[in-house]
């Protein structure tokens, strides 16, 4: 084949790939994989984007029950029987936000990957 033909083929490949890449960059939604931990061990891993039906998870701890509510793209501590209920007041888990923590019952709900573009965050968990 002639060199010119090749140049045309290759440059069109570059253009097609560039368009494809722009498309991927715009369409990809951040992954929302959330891990629920109790006393350091994983209870369940959920991709919030693939949740279709609403459901609840009940965990039993030293200070009674924690009820976690899950729907599409959303997770929150619905109710807790621990004394301070900080985890319930925290509201829904936000991208880049602090994890939902119930200290008395040792429950943590957090994103599996750090979504804030850094390896760690200072001063967040207290």
């Amino acid at each position: 084949m002639k060199t010119r033909t090749w140049i045309i083929i290759l440059s069109s490949a570059v253009i097609v790939c560039a368009v494809l890449w722009m498309f991927i960059l715009n369409s990809s939604s951040p992954s929302k994989i959330v891990g629920i931990y109790q006393d350091g061990s994983l209870v369940e891993k959920i991709d919030l984007n693939s949740v279709t039906d609403e459901r609840e998870i009940t965990l039993n701890g030293k200070f009674g029950k924690n009820i976690i509510f899950i729907s599409h793209g959303h997770i929150e501590m619905k109710s807790a029987e621990c004394p301070d209920k900080i985890c319930v007041k925290h509201g829904a888990l936000e991208i880049g936000g602090t994890p939902i923590v119930c200290l008395p019952n040792k429950v943590v709900i957090q994103f599996e990957e750090t979504p804030y573009g850094a390896d760690a965050k200072t001063g967040a968990a207290e």
Binding site: E94, I95, G96, G97, T98, Y116, G117, A118, D119, A120, K121, T122, G123, A124
Partner: peptide, 18 residues
């Protein structure tokens, strides 16, 4: 280098810088 974000005092989900 490790990248460490500093929490925005007004909004835990944001950061002041890294």
């Amino acid at each position: 280098d490790w990248s460490v974000a500093i929490t925005d005092p007004d909004d835990n989900s944001k950061q002041v810088g890294t």
